[in-house]
Design a binder for these strands. Structure first.
Lengths: 236, 236
DNA sequence: AAAATAAAGTGTTTTTTGTACACTTTCGAA
DNA sequence: TTCGAAAGTGTACAAAAAACACTTTATTTT
C-alpha cells in the first residue's frame, strides 16, 4: 500500500486547439496563475489531470472546458508523452507545488488536438488559468513543461492531415469561400498554391458543397460560399 | 495522501508485434499463467505496467523482452487506450487479482507496434507468460482486456503505413525476393497487385538494393535477392 | 536427355492525375 | 464612370498509375 505512494504516477491530458484568423494559424494557450516570485508569465497548453474514473477523451473535453470555457469541441488524441523527466524545469516544479496535491508525482500526458472555427469559440479563463488567448503559432513563447515539444508534434500532425485533405475545414466558419480555404491551406502548409488547380481539386471532393449564396459586404466581386459536409471519425 | 490511494491509476504498455511467415501475417501473443478454476486459456498481447521512473518507450521494450525474450525490437507508439472500464471482464479481474499488487487500480495503456523478421526472433515465454507464440491475424481468439480492440487498431495502422510504402520490409528476412515482398503487401493490404507495376515502383525506391545474389534451393527459376537499407525514425 | 513445372523477369500503351500558366468578371467605393 | 480587389475560369504538357502477356531458367520427373 505504501508502495503505491512511492510510485506516484499521474496521467494528464493536454489540448492543442488550433484556430485560424486574419490569415494566421493560431493556437489556444492559457497563462497560468502567477505563483512565482520573479513574476514570470507562464504560458501553457490547457491541460490537467485525468480523474480516477474518467475516460481520457472525456478528460480532454472537460479540462479544455474548465480552463477556457470552450465546449463541444471534438478533440483527437495524437501522442502520449512519457519521458519521466518531462516535468523538471525549475518553474515547472514551483508551479506544481502550488497547484497539485502530489507535486512530485511523475506525470504522463496524453496530447489531443482540435481544429475550431474561432468565431464560434471565445475562450474565457477559469480554474487556474488567468488568461486564455489565441496565439499566433509563428510567435509562441517558451511554454511550461514539454509543451513546446507537444505543440511542435501537433503542428506536424496538422500539416500531414491537411496535405492528405482529411482535415482543415473545421478551422473555417460554416460558410466559407474557396479563397479563404486556399489561404488556410497556404498558411498551414507554408507554401503557395495555384488557384485554378486548387479549386479543381476541392470541387471534386464530395464533402464540399457549393451554396446558392454569395459573400456580402466585401469591396470586390463577392465570392460564392461553400460548406463542408464531412463527418466525424469513430471513437474508442 | 489517502486521496492518492483512492485514485489508483496505473499506466501500462501493450505490444503488438507483427511477423510474416508462410505467406501469413502473424502477431505475437502470450498465454498467461493459468489462474482460473475453469481452466480458460487466456491469450493476450504482451504488456505490463510502466515502472515509476521509466520512459514509456523503454517500458515497451522491457516488457516485450521480459515476456517473450525478444530484444532490440523497435516499437512505435500508436494509441493510448483510456476507457475506465477497459479492464472489467470477469476473467480480467480474476487474473489481475493474482498478478497485480493493486488489482483494482484503473489502468490506462499505451499501445505500441512493431514489425519483425520472424526468422530472427524466436520468442520464449518468461515472467507471467506461459507461452509466447505467433498467431495468424486471421485467426485470433478472444483476448484479455481490450486487446482485441487494440489489435484491430494496430492492423489498421499497419495497413495505412504499408499503402504509404513507409513500412513493411521489417517483416522480411534481410535478403528477400521481390516476389516475397509483393506477397507480403498483398497479404497485408488484402488485394492483388500487378507484378510489373509493383516491381517498377519498388525499383525506383532508393531504400531497396539489388544484391548480386540469387535464391537457392527452389524448384523453379531462382529470383534475385534484394535488401532494405532504410533507416529508423526519430524518437521523442 | 527431354519434357514438365513453377515462378522469375521484362515494356508498351492507355488513363489518370498533377502542374503550369493569364485574362475576364463583378461588386463596392471613390 | 472609373478604379481597386479578389473571383472565377480552361487548356496544354508532364508525370504517375494502371492494364496487359509472353519468355526465361533452374529443378524435378519421366
Amino acid at each position: 500500500m505504501n508502495e503505491h505512494l512511492q510510485s506516484q504516477l499521474d496521467v494528464s491530458v493536454d489540448c492543442v486547439v488550433f484556430g485560424f484568423h486574419n490569415n494566421r494559424l493560431k493556437v489556444l494557450l492559457i497563462e497560468q496563475e502567477n505563483v512565482s516570485k520573479n513574476n514570470n508569465r507562464r504560458y501553457a497548453l490547457p491541460g490537467d489531470l485525468v480523474l480516477p474514473d474518467e475516460h481520457i477523451d472525456h478528460a480532454a473535453e472537460r479540462v479544455l472546458y474548465e480552463l477556457t470555457n470552450l465546449k463541444g469541441i471534438y478533440l483527437e488524441q495524437f501522442h502520449t508523452f512519457g519521458n519521466p523527466n518531462r516535468v523538471r524545469k525549475e518553474d515547472d516544479i514551483e508551479w506544481l507545488n502550488v497547484i497539485r496535491k502530489n507535486p512530485d508525482a511523475r506525470v504522463i500526458t496524453i496530447a489531443y488536438y482540435a481544429l475550431v472555427k474561432m468565431e464560434d469559440y471565445t475562450p474565457s479563463p477559469s480554474s487556474y488559468a488567468e488568461k486564455a488567448e489565441w496565439k499566433d503559432v509563428l510567435d509562441i513563447p517558451e511554454l511550461a513543461f514539454d509543451h513546446n515539444k507537444i505543440l511542435r508534434k501537433a503542428l506536424k500532425k496538422l500539416r500531414k492531415e491537411v496535405s492528405d485533405h482529411t482535415v482543415g475545414f473545421e478551422l473555417l466558419p460554416e460558410k466559407f469561400t474557396l479563397g479563404q480555404l486556399q489561404q488556410l491551406y497556404e498558411v498551414i502548409l507554408d507554401m503557395q498554391l495555384d488557384k485554378r488547380n486548387f479549386r479543381k481539386a476541392i470541387k471534386k471532393m464530395d464533402t464540399v458543397l457549393a451554396l446558392e449564396e454569395k459573400q456580402k459586404g466585401v469591396l470586390h466581386k463577392p465570392a460564392q460560399l461553400f460548406t463542408y459536409i464531412g463527418e466525424r471519425k469513430e471513437v474508442d
